[in-house]
Design a protein around this nucleic acid. Structure first.
Ligand SMILES: [Zn+2]
Ligand SMILES: [Zn+2]
Length: 748
DNA sequence: AGCACGCCGACT
DNA sequence: GTCGGCGTGCTC
């Protein structure tokens, strides 16, 4: 009797063992369908075959179906999953869930023949669709059904659905996918009208995928720094590329293209990780142009189907993929002959996944992925993370290539001053006016969206808070609502105070909406645009904002963090104003100074290289080291000081942090569990354990939250600490089963 | 983590 | 009488 250890996308501590049907062709890495529990059927991955029966209560169950004839998950992937689960303190099943696109590991059972629908041939163009939507406007549900169908189509790199793919079979979408929130009758009507076609299709494990693309032309010229990086790789597996990386000059991009082309020429794959999808159209377009069909895009904005198709292409035609461009989830694709991993803007906090598990850092995971494949890693950022800076400049673990300023470049002027009473200091207001008069553009940065972070009653002093969270409600003027930024709860705005009934609520503090309004009053003839998560919902909206900026349409661009990455060749930005740097610096997080420095330095890159631009920072902490370093353009000095401080205060990168989070609707329960855990941890870890402490917002969605921190010195075995931690955690969970506890490594 | 089973308050 | 709240325990 043969048994198979099967990894299931379920949060159980270890794989389950099933019996293999006699004579079945099965090997590790294949997908199988297995019974789980009373009546569920689940898809899992074969890890290992052996002859030891499981120790479960009611004997072994038998595998239902083997879905593959060749491994679907490569051994390097399984080893990466294992590393993530162990390092980031989650189960292998949770990692598997994150790693395989939903369309593939979709836990539910699908009947063998399924109704599919697709667009009829007459309507396969965006013009036809637009016309059609106009014609059936009256039938609202049918419109919705059609839009729902379109949302399931694989996307072209520009984010629009591909209406006329080379293979029309790619247009088939399972009807049940659409009917999840659309009545089936609406789809039936569309079929009757001849807009959609309907057919029963038997899904095979490996269905429609694009055929092998032709070999692309390689770019002939090598940019100046690519050779330096290649040389640095001779002595180091990892190289940090930093210095004057200017988006407007495509400095990094030309290096990426050249290095990827080298790898492709040697028959190896490259993975390029980007921090997000919104501001990367420029990069993806250039890569598409350079590598054509050898370039594969993979990110969370793709539909499940498109993600599955990408995965299957990598498995079945690895030779057709030279460069994978994607967000952090692209780490989990089935690479073969991976030669190089590039992490663009490696300091970006988006690389950290915070929820759900696995709570991993894509930059650090990328290094492990590369080492599993014997590949090289290029970390690139004009403002590296403190961790990477230490490894490159401090201890020499990484090779380092720094791009110097181009000859003739003059650094922009930096002015730091008090804001004063109003929103804009007189100085900043005058500078904005002068910049606009010169026909140049202004960027205003503020790290808060909405109109005002809180409102206050002028009569009684009361401030409305979220009923579910311990946090003030943010006033959004555009939607006339008070919104909780932690749980999303909102109510319509009214200036009547709920405490005293007076008509006396006034907005307090500064959000991007208020800056936009204020700028519009001061400069009525200037077109003002705002870019934050409220206005930059999708790639289209971002594209419009960027186009308006580069075409000179926009005079003033107001926004949050994302404005720092809007640099484009052709814009005429002459001034960047930071409305209030204090709230960045006051953030209760040991990374606050680092984050502020990185952001301000990046804002500076929006300014022209001829020295004619100016960065104005409004802050009451004019002597703050981060601000001084920005003013002096002193990156090395900033990191030296910052690292020294971290070493003294026992913060990363000199210690590894493990964090526990306790959550329960009853505060006494949260406290009891955290204190009991602290006591047990203290027995083993002594002073390395922090007392329980409240996060800045100590109640979210009616759950009271407490944290515990454990600091492990770099040189000590962190794996052993984690084992002990998990043992203690198991005991605490038994004693406080209702308290929700999560453990994280390297919390951000 | 899901998800079934199970045991007590407010509705037809 | 039933619908449904979420506490508890299991999944090879
Ligand atoms: Zn009041
Ligand atoms: Zn809330």
């Amino acid at each position: 009797m043969t048994f198979a250890d099967i990894l299931l996308p379920v949060a159980v501590p270890r794989p389950f063992t099933y019996a293999v049907p006699d004579g079945a062709a099965i090997s590790p890495g294949m997908r199988v369908r297995v019974p789980l529990g009373k009546s569920k059927i689940c898809e899992g991955i074969v890890l290992e075959l052996h002859r030891t029966p499981p120790t479960s209560k009611n004997g072994p169950k038998t595998i239902f179906e083997i879905l593959d004839t060749q491994p679907f998950v490569r051994p390097e992937q399984l080893r990466l999953w294992e590393w993530i689960a162990a390092y980031y303190l989650c189960t292998p099943g949770e990692t598997m869930k994150a790693a395989l696109p939903a369309g593939i590991r979709n836990g539910s059972y699908r009947p063998s023949a399924q109704l599919h629908v697709r667009l009829a041939p007459d309507y396969r163009s965006s013009a036809k669709i637009a016309e059609l939507l106009e014609n059936i406007r009256r039938a609202k549900t049918q419109c919705k059904a059609l839009l729902a169908y379109l949302s399931f189509l694989p996307c072209a790199p520009d984010g629009e659905p591909q209406l006329a793919p080379d293979d029309p079979a790619a247009l088939w979408v399972p009807r049940s996918d659409i009917t999840e929130d659309i009545p089936a009758t609406a789809i039936l009507r569309l079929v009757e009208r001849g807009i959609l076609e309907q057919q029963e299709i038997i899904p095979s494990a490996h269905d429609g995928h694009p055929s092998s693309p032709p070999v692309p032309e390689l770019p002939a010229d090598t940019p100046p720094y690519a050779a330096q990086i290649t040389a640095a790789f001779a002595g180091h597996a990892t190289v940090l590329l930093s210095g004057e990386i200017a988006d407007t000059r495509n400095t990094a991009l030309s290096v990426y293209i050249s290095l990827a082309a080298q790898e492709i020429a040697r028959g190896r794959q490259t993975l390029l990780l980007l921090p997000d999808t919104v501001l990367t159209a420029r990069i993806t377009n250039a890569l598409q142009a350079a590598f054509g069909p050898r370039c594969l895009f993979y990110h969370s904005r793709l539909t499940d189907r498109a993600r599955s198709a990408a995965y299957q292409r990598m498995i079945e035609q690895p030779g057709s993929v030279g460069l994978v461009v994607g967000t952090r989830s692209a780490l989990f694709l089935p690479f073969r002959q991976l030669g190089l991993v590039i992490v663009d803007n490696e300091h970006d906090p988006n690389y950290r996944q915070n929820d759900p598990a696995p709570r991993y850092h894509a930059r650090d995971t990328a290094l492990v992925l590369a080492s599993l494949h014997g590949a090289k890693t290029l970390l690139a950022s004009p403002t590296p993370s403190a961790e990477s800076w230490l490894n490159a400049a401090g201890n020499g673990k990484y090779g380092a290539v720094s791009i110097p300023a181009a000859t003739g470049d003059i650094l922009p002027e930096v002015t730091i001053l008090e804001r004063g009473k109003g929103l804009l200091s007189t100085y900043l207001r005058k500078r904005i006016g002068r910049t606009l008069d010169q026909g140049r553009q202004v960027v205003l940065f503020q790290n808060r969206r909405g109109f005002a972070p809180y409102v206050e009653c002028a009569n009684c002093g009361a401030t409305p808070t979220c009923p579910h969270c311990n946090v003030t409600l943010t006033y959004h003027k555009e939607t006339s609502a008070l919104v909780c930024h932690y749980c999303g709860w909102s109510r319509p705005y009214s200036s009547t105070c709920t405490s005293c009934g007076m008509h006396a609520l006034v907005p307090r503090g500064i959000g991007t909406e208020r800056i936009e309004e204020c700028a519009a009053e001061l400069f009525p003839d200037t077109k003002i645009a705002r870019m934050d998560t409220d206005t930059a919902r999708n790639a289209g909206a971002v594209g419009r904002i960027l186009t308006d900026l580069v075409e000179g349409e926009t005079g003033i661009l107001v926004g949050t963090r994302m404005v720092a990455r809007t640099a484009q060749a052709g814009d005429r930005i002459g001034l960047v104003g930071v409305i209030n740097a204090d709230n960045m610096l006051a953030h209760p997080d040991f990374r606050a100074a680092e984050r502020a420095f990185q952001l301000l330095m990046q804002l500076k890159t929006l300014l022209p290289a001829d020295g004619s631009g100016e960065l104005v920072v409004q802050s009451s902490q004019r002597l703050h080291p981060a601000l001084v370093a920005v003013a002096n353009h002193d990156t090395a000095g900033f990191y030296a000081r910052e690292l020294e401080e971290r070493q003294g205060l026992l913060y990363p990168p000199y210690v590894r942090m493990l964090r526990l989070t306790f959550r329960h609707p009853d505060k006494t329960q949260t406290t009891a569990a955290a204190q009991a855990c602290e006591a047990l941890l203290r027995e083993r870890f002594g002073r390395r354990v922090s007392p329980p402490f409240e996060p800045q917002v100590d109640r979210v969605q009616n759950l009271f939250i407490l944290h515990l921190l454990l600091r492990i010195e770099r040189q000590r075995p962190v794996a052993r600490a984690k084992t002990i931690l998990l043992e203690i955690l198991a005991r605490i969970r038994k004693r406080f089963p209702a308290v929700h506890i999560i453990a994280e490594a390297d919390p951000q």
